[in-house]
Write a protein that binds this DNA or RNA. Structure first.
Lengths: 209, 209
DNA sequence: CAGCATGCTAAGCAAGCGCTTAGTCACTCC
DNA sequence: GGAGTGACTAAGCGCTTGCTTAGCATGCTG
């Protein structure tokens, strides 16, 4: 795993512009937990501020609105996921090895970071239009990386699928949905689940052993 | 498709207790659309009543609360899905044929009824506790039917998977997630998507041709 | 025909919402 | 030491929320 660990996701400002103030970090972390558990609209600014140990008004010193908090979470979450996907797609090795690593990392990421994953994947509709546009671009990039590996594998005669787009959709779909159903109480560790999903996906793609 | 067509999902009362009054039907249909598009908490009772062509107060003549509307949608949606799954699992033919039909029907159902599917799968947390318990039971039943076919296939030496539970989770997961990403503008029809997913899943399960 | 149930609307209530305002405190700088 | 600054709070504003109340037509029943 060369990608950003989940715990470090919010500690630095976008673009590597130094560390994030601790109070802003606490607000972001509290917002992730609350949005994941209750959903964006069911979460109040008082919930977030209280969980971060502040009065409601203090939130607005660090973020201009509740929606800005969601946008920052969504942007950082998607950027980290894209980074993880690019690391796997650009690694050494053939399409089979790269796809295995992608599915393993993508799956265990969505299991381990299921709270972030829920916000990132299921609260998109609550984003302001311009923030949504940015995130939609990142999602498209992710889908393209997956399609790229499948196309490579097809060209090399290592995969066998009727349609690249549907196959790529199925691969990302399996990983994303993990953040819906996975709980810490699940019997499998994120890594073990990733390994199993890697096996299933490679067979789904008709990978030659 | 022997299961309840989506258009008929709300026209009769639970337990076949006669037809549902037309006004109550209109409220349910409006609630499904609104919950699917904006989410439960972002939808107001005024939204629903207005879309159904009534004043806000009229809603409470037919349903005791906004949550009762969600519960009815969720219950009926899950019951119909279970019916569909049972029809496939109990059909004639071997595990391969039954699994193919299950995935085809399950997938095209979640594509065609994507609005219902979104409410049913992504608004569970908003259900009152007792309604949630009922629905959780139905979801368990669905998972069990899928696991049953996989176990049958394993016993007959027709499938090859390391773990039944993970494989079953992957099968239902693929279908459920369709309601998240599928749009009417998608290039594939629900039936065509079902066929493609059927192929992918059978290969994922290591089905012998 | 009176009496009453049914299905609805207009008006509005109490509570909670996102966000603002005014002011306090600790700290830095000259 | 006085002025300025940044992080924060107490209080609350305007608005919207889920839901209630009171009343009004309509149509059925004896």
């Amino acid at each position: 795993m060369t990608s950003t660990p989940i715990a470090d996701l919010w500690t630095t400002l976008p673009g590597g512009a130094g560390p994030r103030p601790e109070a802003a970090y606490r607000l972001l972390a509290a917002a992730v937990e609350a949005f994941a558990e209750r959903g964006y609209h069911a979460t109040t600014t008082r919930d977030i501020a209280t969980a971060a140990g502040m009065s409601p008004a203090a939130l607005y010193i660090h973020y201009p609105s509740k929606a800005a908090l969601l946008a920052e979470i969504s942007r950082a979450g998607h950027a980290a996921t894209l980074e993880l996907v690019r690391a796997a797609a650009g690694a050494e090795g053939g399409p089979v090895e790269r796809m295995r690593r992608l599915v393993e990392d993508f799956t265990s990421w969505h299991a381990q970071g299921r709270t972030v994953g829920r916000v990132v994947n299921y609260e998109l509709h609550a984003l302001p239009a311009e923030d949504y546009a940015v995130v939609a671009g990142l999602r498209l990039d992710i889908e393209r990386e997956v399609s790229g590996i499948i196309a490579d594998g097809l060209a090399a005669g290592l995969f066998e699928v009727a349609e690249v787009k549907t196959a790529a959709r199925a691969v990302t779909s399996l990983g994303i949905d993990v953040s819906r159903w996975y709980t810490g109480r699940s019997s499998e560790s994120p890594q073990e689940l990733g390994r199993r999903y890697g096996e299933l996906v490679l067979r789904m793609l008709g990978a030659r052993p």
